[in-house]
Design a protein around this nucleic acid. Structure first.
Lengths: 120, 120
DNA sequence: CTATAGGTTAGACAAGTGTCAAAATAGAGG
DNA sequence: CCTCTATTTTGACACTTGTCTAACCTATAG
């Protein structure tokens, strides 16, 4: 029974419906949600997360947006700092992939208890 | 089978892992995530959502925070405008309750497909 | 070593955000 | 009507954010 109960098996917080968030955790989680709170970043994360290879080259991302390359870079950095994506360089190219654990954490926080239990 | 497939049964978008978000939806969803991207608002939502009565009086919220009443009011307004909470007045008091459908939408977007399926 | 292409960093700037104090609104109860 | 309490609105202000251009790294290819 180590994976159930208040921790909800997600490594961070019980779902909102179950328990109010204490201020410290709220600050933590808010930082991640904030990173998702911009259309460019949300699309970036979406493209990175949905990619069949499990990672995406920045070179394939920039052309999909209306903003300049440094702006993409800026948004990717924010996603990184929020812990939502990881990156590494391979030759000239840089690849980004999602940190799925973090996404699961956020999802679990917002999930209704019955959903969370069903997904246990 | 009306509730499965690409719509993921959540009334909005398929999970990130399944499908990249189109720009229009991304803007929509980003607006909601943005509302969660502040510690005060996240705690407010948490308190509102976790309350056993299913709703909370503003008068019970303000004392739990370090910020002045107008600031709480401001944050509640943002949560309202994001569609995450509803409110109504009863006498002198105003009560807020969560819009659980929206929370489920956000949760589903971030959920890994296997979780989403488990919760189907 | 130089040139070239992919990404990031630095600096600047307009626009947006979170906070407060003061004023305004909405009901309840004289 | 007047007053009191709960909540919201307004206006002001410092701080943060998203965007750009220009400059800078880093690795590959001559």
């Amino acid at each position: 029974m180590a994976a159930d109960g208040a921790s909800s098996g997600q490594g961070c917080c019980a779902p909102l419906e179950t328990l109010p968030l204490d201020p410290a955790h709220a600050t933590n989680m808010a930082k991640m949600f904030k990173a998702l709170g911009d259309p460019v970043r949300l699309r970036l994360l979406s493209l990175i997360t949905a990619h069949p290879d499990g990672e995406v080259c920045v070179c394939d991302l920039t052309s999909l947006f209306d903003v300049a390359a440094p702006t993409i870079s800026y948004h990717l950095k924010l996603l990184r700092e929020a812990g939502l994506v990881e990156h590494d360089r391979r030759g000239t190219w840089v690849y980004y992939r999602p940190v799925r654990e973090r996404l699961r954490q956020l999802s679990a926080l917002l999930a209704a208890p019955d959903m969370a239990e069903a997904a246990r």
